[in-house]
């Protein structure tokens, strides 16, 4: 097995996949802690489905790069969803559900009616489940992922205290003049960028796992915001790396393998918490 692993890692695209996968896992886990605590766990699903719809539109329009359409549309949707607030006519969960299924249906319809691809099912399957797309990145894709991941991580490092305040007491943050409105806007943009990146790793349907599982697993074991954030990062990176390597060796779908590792670690954390007396 080690010889096989050494052979596989002699290929640069496998190294690219691992680096990009770990960075995506790190970025999404940082985001996930705030989103889970703000009760926006399903935002990943909603935004990834909107991204799928935008990707379908970009494919039909035959754009040079899908990102031209996918990223702005996803960012705009994230801003609308996360900034709607409590006075919105359409509350958060209903809005997410509506946009999510609507974008998925419209995207699939566009692809079926207008796409010229010879393997439509394969393209849709890859986008929804991220079967092997992480292994087919070009160097340009890698640099783009790297750049976005660096921006996400820097954002969390620089605004850590403000993110903490906005997450736990947004009213206080506004009253204290911490720029809660602008920070929420930034979080929305970062969420959109991370989700678009994460679709390369696990596909549209499984993106929520990258956001939710590390945070929930860490919360089973630790209590303070900082410790949970660090633990979520470590858990996410280790699970994503293990899942990716397992899928390469065992020829299983990458996205599903990573999520299964997350599930196992979450269950283990629940067991440890129960043994330790935490509920």
């Amino acid at each position: 097995m080690l010889e096989t692993l050494a052979l596989y890692f002699s290929y640069p695209f496998v190294r690219y996949a691992l680096v990009v996968g770990l960075l995506i896992a790190l970025s999404s886990s940082l985001l996930g802690v705030s989103l889970v605590l703000k009760r926006f766990s399903f935002i990943g699903d909603g935004l990834s489905h909107v991204a799928f719809g935008a990707l379908a539109a970009a494919t039909v329009l035959d754009l040079a790069s899908d990102m031209i359409l996918v990223l702005p549309v996803t960012v705009l949707t994230a801003v609308l969803l996360l900034r709607s607030g409590q006075n919105a006519r359409l509350k958060g969960d209903a809005a997410i559900a509506m946009l999510s299924v609507g974008a998925l249906a419209v995207g699939y319809l566009l692809l079926n009616v207008f796409s010229k691809s010879s393997n439509l099912s394969g393209d849709v399957c890859t986008t929804l489940f991220g079967a092997t797309s992480i292994l087919t990145l070009t160097p340009a894709d890698v640099w783009a992922c790297l750049g976005l991941s660096v921006l996400v991580i820097l954002f969390f490092l620089v605004f850590y205290h403000r993110i903490f305040a906005v997450t736990f007491d947004e009213t206080f943050a506004r009253a204290a003049g911490l720029g809660a409105g602008r920070l929420n806007l930034l979080i929305a943009c970062v969420a959109a960028a991370v989700i678009v990146l994460a679709m390369n790793l696990v596909g549209s349907l499984l993106v929520s796992a990258l956001i939710v599982f590390p945070a929930l697993t860490a919360m089973r074991l630790f209590k303070s915001f900082g410790t949970v954030t660090v633990a979520a990062c470590l858990i996410s990176v280790l699970c994503a790396g293990a899942g990716l390597i397992f899928s390469i060796l065992a020829s299983t779908p990458v996205g599903a393998s990573i999520v299964c590792v997350y599930i196992l670690v979450f269950l283990a954390a629940c067991g440890l918490a129960r043994l330790g007396g935490r509920t």
Binding site: R15, V19, L157, G226, V230
Partner: peptide
């Protein structure tokens, strides 16, 4: 704790230096 993600990022960047750099030539 806040530096940990940054340290990891540095490690990940170092990992990309293994083998050829993706942008090291006109045809990387």
């Amino acid at each position: 704790k806040q530096l940990l993600p940054g340290l990891f990022l540095a490690g990940a960047l170092a990992l990309t230096g293994c083998g050829s750099s993706p942008a090291s030539s006109a045809a990387p």
